[in-house]
Design a protein around this nucleic acid. Structure first.
Lengths: 315, 315
DNA sequence: CTGAAAGCGCTAACAT
DNA sequence: ATGTTAGCGCTTTCAG
């Protein structure tokens, strides 16, 4: 009942392990006849190559690590799903680590991935600190940063031009004659928070009434809006989830989102469309594809993606 | 720039690799003094154990595989997130595979996990076929089925009593005087579809007006409801996502969910609360905890979980 | 075309 | 308390 090995197959086929290895890896130099015998033995024993042993020998694991802040956030779930699709095609395995709830720090997540042996890592970093990323790069692990731009870092990136994206939101709201807006953002140390805030102000032409810095989940957004004495004309939220929290609160306060108050989200996750939420769309699929190719190549490239404003009923 | 090995550390500390190994694994039998020297060398070189090499030697990979139909479904994303939290605590690595979009078949997903070397697998199976699961069990891989009950299968399970759960929905709607209901379900070959349908009928006391068998996503539910000539008094949906699709369609038709038409979902994912959706709650956290322990133990147990009806505005 | 030898990094078992 | 030997399953290299 033990897992069969190359040797077992060799014995059964009456050859050496080496010849079996050649067959398994489609290497040339095996006569059709022995090949057939070996293939048959493989079938019968249900032999499958032992990938760890191979990795050890070859020095490549065919594993790719992904670091996201929370897999439960649909944006990241979709990203991970896309990466898995791509990985499957090229016979790689994906290992996901989330930092927000579990590891608390990217450092630990990266270390865990390094320890479990990955060839490359795609990471959606928080506010940062490049050095630790470059360290892994030097360890021979290919690093691709997803989302955040860090000009000095010597590793590949697919980054989002947050400023331009948020600017579109600000400009649109201003064009609708909106004067008073509240920003519902995340931690101000995050690059994303900063980019989205700054871009909004640029587009809006002036400061918003308030900027709330909250934990990134719908509950905190919901509570914050419930507590508000008077409502603004518009909310621009850090992501779609928080936007939904805002909408829930508005409804409970008797305000109709999209009529009384405009609400704009960010990410365009699947339920944004479902909820008729105006939001900023990132072309995730294309970004993921690019990130994945970069993860497998050894050139260093920094590729920019500009998000789009998607208008729906909520604004 | 190559990854340092035990040997490198040994050379640097002036000992044998074996002694270093003992220090790395906190094994007894090393004097404080050499231990200190070795620890220092480890620090300086930035040595990290090579887990594949260790796995090869020890025969355990400390990797756990998870098979779900779609990681993008929040129910599974939450499940995977919970598993990761648990795995991190015991120093294991999680490998996720989704079947719906990528591998199409559990068989292939399981094979992929087997090939990438996992100690155990937690699988949320679709309609099934036990044999292939038992095969892996025999290969020395511990299998835990998540969600579906399969009395004959010789592997552990944490299963959901779908019938009782759905019965509560049927009974509740009946008690509210509802006569005409439509079921928005998934593939009728799925165990879950069958259980939920049957349970509903038992609780409702009679057949629903219609049972729709649709692809499990909000779009299909939405379209189906849009096309409906006349609306029933209630919808019971396969999961929360489809329920939201129904709600979107109802709104567009000018019907108010929870007032004109009752809508009930299933799973209680995070946005069910957000959307005030009445739904059937599965105690996911407890289930995942149980599944995880079973995955690490070698007793075979089948543990039942009974879902609860959570009343919110939508019904 | 085929095989024997060596070794990837690690550790169990047995010395010393 | 420390070191030596052997070998996990595989593949690279070199020799037939």
């Amino acid at each position: 009942m033990k897992r069969p090995t190359l040797k077992d197959v060799a014995r059964k086929a009456g050859t050496s392990p080496m010849t079996v290895s050649r067959v398994v890896n489609n290497k040339p130099g095996v006569s059709e006849e022995t090949k057939a015998r070996i293939t048959k033995a493989i079938e019968e024993l249900g032999y499958k190559p032992h990938s760890d042993a191979r990795s050890l020998r070859v020095g490549k694991t065919c594993r790719i690590g992904v670091v996201v802040s929370d897999i439960r956030n649909p944006f990241y779930a979709e990203m991970v799903g896309d990466i898995e699709d791509l990985a499957e095609k090229v016979g790689m395995t994906v290992i996901v680590t989330d930092t927000e709830r579990k590891l608390k720090q990217e450092q630990r997540a990266l270390e865990a991935l390094y320890n479990s042996g990955v060839d490359s890592i795609i990471i959606a970093p928080e506010g940062y600190n490049v050095e630790h990323l470059e360290a892994y790069k030097k360890n021979g692990i290919n690093i691709v940063s997803f989302g955040v731009h860090c000009p000095e870092g010597h590793f590949s990136e697919v980054w989002i031009d947050e400023i331009t994206g948020a600017k579109k939101v600000g400009a649109y709201l201003a064009s609708r004659g909106i004067e008073k807006a509240i920003l519902v953002m995340g931690n101000p140390r995050k690059f994303t928070t900063r980019g989205r805030t700054e871009g909004f102000i640029q587009g809006f032409g002036k400061d918003p009434n308030r900027i709330l810095h909250l934990p990134v989940n719908w509950q905190s957004a919901y509570k914050a809006v419930i507590k508000l004495d008077k409502l603004p004309e518009a909310f621009f939220c850090y992501n779609d989830i928080m936007a939904l929290g805002v909408i829930k609160a508005l409804r409970e306060k008797g305000a109709i989102p999209g009529e009384d108050v405009a609400v704009v989200g960010y990410d365009d996750v699947f339920f944004a469309e479902l909820s008729a939420l105006t939001t900023v769309r990132i072309d995730k699929t294309r970004m993921v594809n690019t990130a994945f190719s970069l993860a497998l190549s050894d050139v260093v490239e920094k590729i920019k993606f500009v998000p789009e404003l998607i208008l729906r009923k909520s604004a």
